Simulated scan of single mutants.
Amino acid sequence: MARPVIGIICNHYLINDEYPVHAGGTMNSDAISAVSGCIPMIVPSDPDFVTVNDLMDACDGFLLTGGRPNVHPEEYGEDATEAHGDFDRARDAIALPLVRACVERGQPFLGICRGFQEVNVAMGGSLHPEIRDLPGRMNHRMPPDGTLEEKFENRHTVSFTDGGVFHRLMGAQEVVTNTLHGQGIKQAGARVVVDGVAPDGTPEAIFIKDAPGFTLAVQWHPEYQAAQDPVSRPLFAAFGRAAQAWADGRRLTPAQVA
């Protein structure tokens, strides 16, 4: 049986600050291949190269990855400031309509970090430019120093809604995750259900209410050592089951794969 194809929505990047590429971390591809059981396909996230319809015809599901560029605040009706950081407008132009199309069609996606924020903005929500500047919030950003292992180490708990989608999927109401983000949900978009939060109240896990397909997104980075991590593994495995169902002509909601 052919493996489902997962389009990995990646970022613009400059090698040596001069050679432009579309880049996605190899740990994303590893998680999709080893845990989801799917074929990872890097997507040039630019409307000059692909359309949403092209991608939906070519892929069985989508991984909306993290990345340094943020969603441009114009997408949620605000002006850009220095606190909003760098942007990738070409990715905005692909990822946001792609999320909406997948929600309507029932085609599965999994959002990670920036991808989590894209899902919220695509559904009409807004973002805080810098979580750590809010009263009572912790610093969720990546530690500036240390090894890769130290930067991706688990740093806080995430508490899920009792009996909710993530609780059933993980088999636990509280898990421990890494945290490597500056921005976060300010106002949840239409039908966006916040199903998990950090100790400081920052939204960490969402899905789309009444969507006909798999629409999960998380603010942390589950792709890191996904095959070994007890939180990451069930998330990517469930995503793989949803993608296989789509490839077989069926649709599975998060509740059905949990």
Rank of each mutant, 00 (worst) to 15 (best):
V50T: 07
R114F: 08
P135T: 10
L98E: 05
V71W: 05
L55A: 06
M138G: 01
I112C: 05
H84Q: 00
D88G: 04
R91I: 04
H140P: 09
Y76R: 01
D133L: 15
N70L: 00
N139H: 04
A90K: 15
V121P: 07
A93V: 05
G61Y: 06
A83I: 12
R68F: 13
M142W: 04
D92Q: 09
V50A: 06
R105E: 14
L127E: 03
A90R: 14
C102V: 09
A122F: 12
G67I: 09
A122E: 08
N70A: 12
C102W: 02
R68A: 14
R68D: 10
G77H: 04
I94M: 11
G61S: 10
G67P: 03
A93I: 02
A83W: 01
N53F: 00
L63P: 05
R137C: 14
F87E: 04
R141K: 15
F62Q: 06
D60E: 09
A90M: 10
G124A: 09
R137M: 14
P69K: 11
D86V: 11
L55S: 03
E82Y: 05
P135Q: 08
E82Q: 09
G106R: 08
C59N: 02
F87H: 10
C102Q: 02
Y76V: 02
D54Y: 08
A101D: 11
G106Y: 08
P129E: 05
R105C: 08
R68E: 13
D133T: 15
G85F: 07
R91W: 03
G66I: 12
A101R: 14
D133K: 15
R137K: 15
R114G: 10
G136W: 10
D86A: 13
D54G: 05
D92S: 07
G67W: 05
V52A: 02
F62E: 03
M142T: 15
G136K: 11
D54Q: 03
R89H: 08
E75A: 12
L64F: 15
P108I: 06
P135C: 10
R105W: 00
D79T: 14
G124T: 08
A101W: 02
M138R: 14
M138Q: 14
E74C: 10
P69C: 13
L96K: 06
R132P: 00
V119M: 08
D92V: 08
R91H: 02
P69W: 09
C102R: 00
M142R: 13
H72W: 11
G136R: 11
L96N: 05
E74V: 13
H84F: 14
L96Q: 07
G125D: 09
M56D: 07
S126V: 12
M138P: 00
E82V: 13
R141E: 15
F87T: 09
L63A: 03
Q117Y: 06
A83V: 13
D88L: 04
R137D: 00
R137S: 13
H84W: 15
P97E: 01
R141L: 13
D79F: 04
L64H: 07
V99Y: 00
L98G: 07
A93N: 08
V50W: 07
L98A: 03
A58S: 09
G115P: 02
M56R: 15
R89M: 12
L134I: 15
I112T: 10
R105T: 14
H128N: 11
L63T: 04
D57K: 11
V71T: 13
T65Q: 10
P73S: 05
A90S: 13
G111P: 04
E130S: 14
L134M: 14
G77R: 02
D86L: 12
R105N: 09
G115R: 03
